[in-house]
Computed example of a mutant assay.
Amino acid sequence: MTLVAVGLAALLLWDALGWDLAVVRLFGDARGFALRDHWLTAGVLHQGGRWMATGLAVMLLVNAFRPLWPGLSRRERWGAVALTAVSLIVIPLIKQGSTTSCPWDLAEFGGTAHYLSHWRFGLSDGGPGHCFPSGHASAAFAFFSLFFMLRRAYPTQARFALIGVLVMGSLYGLAQLARGAHYPSHTLWTAWICWTIAVVASRLMMRPRPAPPAVAPGVEPVSASAI
């Protein structure tokens, strides 16, 4: 939970300093965003990212029914499926209620909206909204579940899975930033929300069941009906 608290403090500092707009201006101008429809950002990293997420989700489902890692318990396998599903549901729900518009909707980039912090609740920026946090980044960060699923029985693979998810999420976030689809904080908040969900939910969904009490050799366990 320490990492959750540190991450929250860093995100609040980022917002307080107003760095979102400054970073976005590095990629766009009055003509818009040159990389909005680029084959790498819009094709490989955006559309391809969706296919990658679909593949990982299918893998988790297959693993739930028929273990790809023999050392995992049923609770861990199904917990990872549930944890991923929760993240993939929560982020779009938050987006649906958000009044924040995407960078490409701002007037200075050819749109109609005016920049407002996503914490200015109840105020409209004049654009279509529904842009905070980053839904595309959740296609990577929802799979923090892989780390929590593997860390007991396969700690080395768990670390590699965590690194892979972080790299994948960072690439997705960078692509959406370059396209003008999201501010940096949108991706960072998605990572924080998904990680927080994973930390909390893993304790409920993947906690190993307590082992039955040991019985001394030659001693028959006493059943409840015999008492």
Rank of each mutant, 00 (worst) to 15 (best):
I94N: 11
A139E: 11
S134F: 13
S98A: 13
W104C: 14
L123Y: 05
F132Q: 03
P128N: 04
L106N: 03
L106T: 06
G129T: 03
S134Y: 09
T99Q: 13
L123E: 12
I91T: 01
G126N: 10
F143E: 08
S124Y: 10
C131Y: 04
S98D: 12
S98K: 06
V90F: 06
A137G: 12
S124P: 10
I91K: 11
I89Q: 01
C102V: 10
E108N: 03
A142W: 14
H114K: 02
F143H: 08
G111N: 02
W104M: 12
R120K: 04
L88M: 04
E108A: 09
S101P: 03
D125I: 06
T99A: 15
D105G: 10
W104V: 06
D125P: 00
G129P: 12
H136V: 03
P133N: 09
G122F: 06
F121V: 03
P128C: 10
F109I: 02
A137N: 11
T99G: 04
D125A: 09
G110W: 06
S138G: 11
A140N: 02
H130M: 15
P103G: 11
G127S: 08
G126D: 08
F143T: 04
A140Q: 09
T99P: 14
G97F: 12
H130A: 13
Y115L: 10
K95S: 05
S98W: 12
F141I: 02
D105T: 01
K95C: 11
G110C: 01
G110R: 03
A113Y: 07
T112I: 08
W119E: 00
V90R: 05
S117R: 08
F109V: 01
G110Y: 04
C131I: 04
S134P: 09
P92M: 02
R120A: 09
P103E: 07
P103L: 12
G97Q: 10
C102K: 15
G126R: 13
G129R: 10
L106A: 04
S138M: 15
H130E: 11
T100P: 12
S138A: 15
H114N: 04
H118P: 03
S124M: 09
I89M: 15
H130P: 02
F121A: 00
A137H: 07
A107L: 13
I91Q: 05
L116T: 00
F109T: 01
H114L: 08
G127N: 09
P92I: 02
G110I: 01
L93V: 11
V90K: 00
A137M: 08
S117Y: 05
G127Q: 05
P128D: 04
D125E: 12
A140L: 01
R120G: 00
S138V: 15
A139D: 13
A137Q: 07
I94G: 14
A113R: 01
K95T: 09
H136F: 13
S101K: 09
I94P: 12
A140C: 05
Y115Q: 06
L123D: 04
H114C: 05
E108H: 07
H118Q: 05
T112V: 12
R120I: 01
P128Y: 08
L123S: 10
F143S: 02
D105W: 09
G97S: 10
A142I: 08
F132Y: 14
F109Y: 09
A137K: 04
P103M: 12
S134W: 11
A140F: 05
F109E: 02
A139F: 15
P128M: 06
G129M: 13
S124K: 08
H136T: 04
H136Y: 08
Q96I: 14
W104Q: 15
V90S: 06
P128S: 08
V90G: 04
T112L: 09
